[in-house]
Simulated scan of single mutants.
Amino acid sequence: MKQPVQKIGKNIANLAPELDWPRKILAQKTRIKNWYLNTYPTDKNTIKDMDGNATFLDLFETLNNYRNIYYVIFKRNTDSLVRERCFAKLVEITKSKYGDIYEQWLQYTN
């Protein structure tokens, strides 16, 4: 497992300072697996591999700390389409830009 590294540059906490208390509560209460099941109910194979406890706040903090987001979303196996869908929902919750979240994720992968 990769250890977190200190990156130079912007991170999403700086890019989404408007993650105010109501949005933070929404991110904390919204479980990724439940949201995904309600939004994509026919994707049964992916849903069984997802971690039922992970929230969008967990995803936000994982990105912000340059850690592997797949360990948050999944119990086993990974899926880039699910990652992209989760990023899109995180954009909606945080009111940030998809490109900023994606760039943050890329900093971990490099």
Rank of each mutant, 00 (worst) to 15 (best):
R67G: 01
R31F: 08
E18Q: 15
N38W: 09
T94E: 05
N110D: 15
T55V: 05
K7P: 12
L19Q: 09
S96Q: 11
Y71N: 13
E92T: 08
E61R: 04
W21N: 15
A27P: 02
D100K: 07
I101L: 09
F74C: 02
N11V: 01
T46E: 14
P22F: 12
N110C: 15
M50Q: 00
I25A: 11
E84N: 14
E103G: 14
N11S: 06
L19K: 01
F87L: 05
Y66E: 01
L26V: 12
F87W: 04
I73L: 01
V5S: 01
R85C: 06
L81A: 12
N45A: 12
R76D: 14
E18V: 12
T94Q: 04
K2H: 07
D49H: 14
R85V: 03
D20S: 08
R67H: 02
K75I: 13
F60S: 00
K7E: 10
Q107G: 07
K95G: 07
D58C: 04
Q107T: 10
Q107N: 15
Y98A: 09
K7C: 08
A27S: 02
R31S: 10
D43E: 11
K7Q: 10
D43T: 02
S96I: 03
E18R: 14
L63I: 04
V82L: 08
T94Y: 03
I47G: 13
V91H: 08
Y66T: 04
Y70H: 13
D51P: 07
T62V: 02
T39G: 08
N45Q: 14
I101F: 06
L81P: 13
N68D: 07
Y36K: 03
L57P: 10
E103A: 13
T109G: 12
R83T: 02
L19R: 02
R67W: 01
I93N: 01
Y40R: 06
L63W: 01
N53W: 09
L106M: 08
A13F: 11
N77I: 12
R23Y: 07
A13C: 15
N68Q: 08
F87C: 04
I8Y: 15
E103R: 14
K10R: 15
F60N: 03
P4F: 00
N11F: 05
T109A: 11
P41L: 05
K29N: 13
N64Y: 05
Q6V: 13
K33D: 05
L19W: 00
G52N: 09
P17I: 05
I93H: 04
A54N: 05
D51S: 04
